[in-house]
Every structure is written in structure tokens, then in C-alpha cells.
Simulated scan of single mutants.
Amino acid sequence: MQGNDFARTVNVNGAHVYYEYHKHPSASETFVLLHGFLSSSFSFRRLTPLLKEQYNVISIDLPPFGSSGKSNRFIYSYENLANTVISLLDHLNVKNIHLTGHSMGGQIALNVMKKEPSLVDKGVLLCSSGYLKKMNWPVLMASRIPFFHLYVKLWLTRSGIRKNLENVVHNRELIDDEMMFGYLKPFLEDDIFKALTRMIRDREGDLSIAELKKIETPCLLVWGEHDRVVPLTTGERLTKDLPQSRLVVLKETGHLVPEEKPDEVLQHIQQFVNSEAGEYVKNEQHHYKKGLSQTLLTET
């Protein structure tokens, strides 16, 4: 952390929430970054330095991930996580944000847009999760077995950090020791697995089509063409169901777009936030060509 940058943990909405705040000396726009499942602010480590050159940036560790609290009493529903984000931004007196969510963070961002539409000027959804149902009842019942958190830990240990990273990036040459340790570090203590067990029970299904259609916030959707975690078809569906949205597909890219293509992501974000809503985002007139890392801005 340098200059106007700082990191803190505050208690909001019944949770200890860690965040990193990069204050630009003259910027009026603020990006709020929400990471994905089993991740943390670390996943934006290559995008944040680019954004903070021109904007204020707040990166949040969503409970129970990263350096945030891992209580097994907190309600880890997406609605309550959205409430936690809203409470933190109210605590910081931050308004009119560009809310950016990756994977699970995209679904929480959509919940924020639904609950507090006036808070968000524009949304950026990076390979956002969507259309997932609540966990099936056998898993929910199993999660109540004593020491179930040890099964969760065993499952993650067996899959291995390298294997998990190989599943989320297209270019496996990006995986190095720094990257592996950064994603592994939050899972070195058992408390996270107890909290994840609670999250299995608390997580409701993703927003319905009817709910998505009511979100009027202009949204940019950025997808990797080789996303094996949240396939491109999900991005296509979201673009149809979100009234003001446009989809960009990045060539030779997997699920972890902030790590793999931060410069291209920044380029599209800048075009998006610097344009008028009706100029860049056209209702029911989104255009993209799979395999090209570009958006066709002309209308047919």
C-alpha cells in the first residue's frame, strides 16, 4: 500500500469485512471490486493497479473469504452478502459506483443492483455466475453432519490448488508459485471450512429471469471464450435477460479474466464507463463475434 492506499477491517452487518481502498488524488469515479467463490481481492491483483491510475478503487474480501471474518454464525446468502457490501459502502460514504463482480461476485453485484439501484451507476460482470439453483437437499442435509467441514477441506485438498487454477485459466503458463500461494493462503486455517459449510446451507439460488429483467443498471459483460467454470452460454443468457447490457468475448481466455487479460478488460471498461448508456449498451441489440476480443459498437 502506498500514498493514499490503505487496507482495513471493519465490522458491518455483523461481519468483520476486510477491504483495500486506493484513493486517487483527483478521480471522481469509484470502482468496487467483488471477487468470486474460493477467492479474494488477490484475484484483482493485476487489474487493480491499472484501474487505480485513473479511478478510486475499493476491493472487498467477501466473508468468509480472504482476510474477512469466517464466522459460522453469519448468514452467507447472496442477499446478505449484498447487504454487507451496501453497509460497507454506506460506512465509507461512497456512492455512484461502478460495481465490478467476478464469477460469484457478479451474482452478488446483481443483488446489490436489485436492492439499491441508485447506488450503482454502471455494472461490470466478469464471467458472472447465473441461473444456479440452491444446493440440492442431500448436500444440505449432509452439511449438518458434525465435522462436515473436514469433508469440505478434504475435497479441496484432493483437488489441489494447481488443478483448480488450471481449470480457471486458459494459459497455464501464468501459474507460478506466487499465484498458487496467493490463492492457497486463505485456506490454511480450519475456520474457513466451517464457514463454507454454513455457506452451503445459506446460499439461495441465483436471481430469476424475472428479477434480472427488472435491473435497469447498464452492464458490461466480459467473458473468456474458453471459460470452463461459467460457460459463455451463461453470458449470452444474461445479456438477453438484463435490459441494458452488452457482451464482450475475450479470445484465448478462460474464467479468470482479471488475471489473464487485465489490459483488455481495462480497455473495455474504459470504453464502457466513458460512454453514454445508450451509446455503448443497446437494449436487445448486443453484438459480438466469438473468438474476437472486441465489441462491435455500430448498430445494424
Rank of each mutant, 00 (worst) to 15 (best):
M1Q: 09
R228N: 12
L238Q: 03
F148Q: 00
R237W: 10
S28C: 06
L150H: 13
R203G: 00
M179A: 05
K240P: 03
F187I: 03
M199F: 12
D206L: 02
N111F: 05
A195V: 08
L297R: 14
S67N: 15
G278L: 11
W155Y: 10
V281T: 12
H98T: 12
M179V: 08
N83R: 05
F147V: 08
R8Y: 13
S71D: 14
G205S: 11
N56H: 03
Q244A: 10
S245A: 15
V229D: 09
S43Y: 02
E166F: 09
S208V: 08
Y21C: 09
A7F: 04
H255D: 06
F44Q: 09
E53D: 08
E225D: 14
V124T: 05
K214A: 14
D190A: 04
P258T: 12
K23F: 03
L125I: 06
F65H: 13
F187R: 04
Q107G: 14
I269C: 04
L140V: 13
I269N: 01
T234P: 02
R201L: 03
N72E: 12
V85Q: 11
L212P: 02
E20K: 07
F193E: 02
G254R: 10
L165F: 07
L292P: 01
Y19G: 01
K240V: 13
E20C: 03
S103L: 09
T300S: 13
S208P: 09
I269W: 04
C219M: 00
Y18D: 05
K261T: 06
E216K: 14
G105D: 07
S59G: 07
I75W: 06
L232G: 01
S41P: 00
F6D: 05
L247P: 03
E260K: 04
S43E: 14
G205M: 10
L38G: 01
R8E: 15
T48Q: 13
K289V: 15
L220E: 02
E204H: 06
V139S: 10
T233N: 08
V230I: 13
Q271F: 02
A195L: 10
